[in-house]
Design a binder for these strands. Structure first.
Lengths: 139, 139
DNA sequence: TCATTTTATATTGCGCACAATTTAATTTAG
DNA sequence: CTAAATTAAATTGTGCGCAATATAAAATGA
């Protein structure tokens, strides 16, 4: 008789609520760096790789130019990234870290730890969650 | 040496990406009912309980009036819900299903099945995911 | 070669999310 | 009983997300 049209039966609602809860947990920490959670994700990529095209960022973060272009302009305005057209291909925009953007990493280094502490579950469960989620991500 | 400031090391990014992937999976199905995913969540609650105040919806869905008020106005405009002030307490707005809103349930009944089919993982893993996520939801 | 197609980014428009503030009704305390 | 505090929604403003479209540069092909 199980009625799948019950909020309590849904898997999708917890995923949606959890995702929002996460960005709310990040908010006070990221406020100190003057960036938002999606902006932080871009910075994470750039801290790892120095520079990326808009397209490459989009593939990594699963976001399109409609989201990234204005977001990157805001990061540029804050002075954390540069946006320059590629000389070889004028269509391509290369996003790179400024000195300020590079330095920001220092202030961000203990954020992951603090977030995990908030979540108050075991590392095993976190890894388990990550494994399942990654498996469920299509592509 | 593990560098937690790596996108690949983050648990939060898969959660964020998965949540967006879900609403993208729902979109083509919900387009046919002319509602969005957050609107669908409101309908789920009302299909179960007939009527709720804005506050009660907010508690269940973890959304505030800043999000719900305009969303509910859109559902009202589509003819799926009524919004009426409580006679006992004029501050309270009661949201209830219209006949159209009630009928919409019929068209939604196989959506959960279709979504699960898209995800292509075992029921056990889904339940495991749901358990962990619910555990991680604070409150 | 030069029109056609493809690709990369940008723009527009809509609907969330959420912080901060406002408005108005109810509760409470003195 | 009334001033102060609390509560419920609404409003305002900012930043995503994403569909749809536009723009412009590069690649392809007859």
């Amino acid at each position: 008789m199980e009625d799948l049209l019950k909020l309590e039966k849904q898997i999708c609602f917890p995923a949606y609520a959890f995702s929002r809860q996460l960005t709310n947990l990040y908010r006070p920490l990221l406020d100190k760096l003057d960036i938002t959670y999606p902006q932080y994700l871009v910075m994470l990529v750039l801290w790892g790789e120095q520079e990326k095209t808009v397209n490459q960022l989009g593939v990594k973060l699963r976001l399109d130019s409609g989201t990234l272009t204005p977001l990157l302009k805001r990061l540029e305005q804050k002075g954390f990234v540069n946006r320059t057209r590629s000389k070889q291909d004028e269509r391509v925009v290369i996003v790179s870290l400024t000195e300020e953007g590079t330095k920001l990493r220092e202030q961000a280094k203990d954020i992951p730890m603090k977030i995990v502490a908030c979540l108050d579950v075991s590392i095993e469960e976190l890894l388990q969650l990550k494994t399942i989620l990654n498996k469920m991500l299509i592509d």
